[in-house]
Amino acid sequence: MRIDPSTPVPIFQQIADGIRGAVAAGVYRAGDLIPSVRAQALTLLVNPNTVQRAYEQLERDGLIACKKGVGMVVCNESIASARNGVDQAMRMLLEQVVQYARSAEINRTSVDRLYRDAWNQSDKRGQSR
């Protein structure tokens, strides 16, 4: 997970999204412990209160739960709901892309091509790493 303060997305939201993504990808599975607030704060180099805020959001959303004397664990039904959350975030981003394309009068064929290019670029970067 990477935190980038220069983007307008609030840091707590970046952390929450990061964990949601990690659960969806199977990095954390049901019953797994996620790092403590303090450990997470030190790894990501952010204020512990910010991590706390992210965890509270995930707890409210039912993705993680506090297990007494153990810490924060990933809930049983989390994988499906994390997938849902990630899907929803993707849908919102793509809607923005479509809206932007409409206002800039870029047609659907061009957007399809740009989208494929973006995937290819990303794959290339992945291989060279």
Binding site: P5, S6, V46, N47
Partner: peptide
């Protein structure tokens, strides 16, 4: 470094 302040400060 405002990025540091945003990360760390209350």
């Amino acid at each position: 470094t405002l990025a540091d302040v945003e990360r760390l400060a209350d």
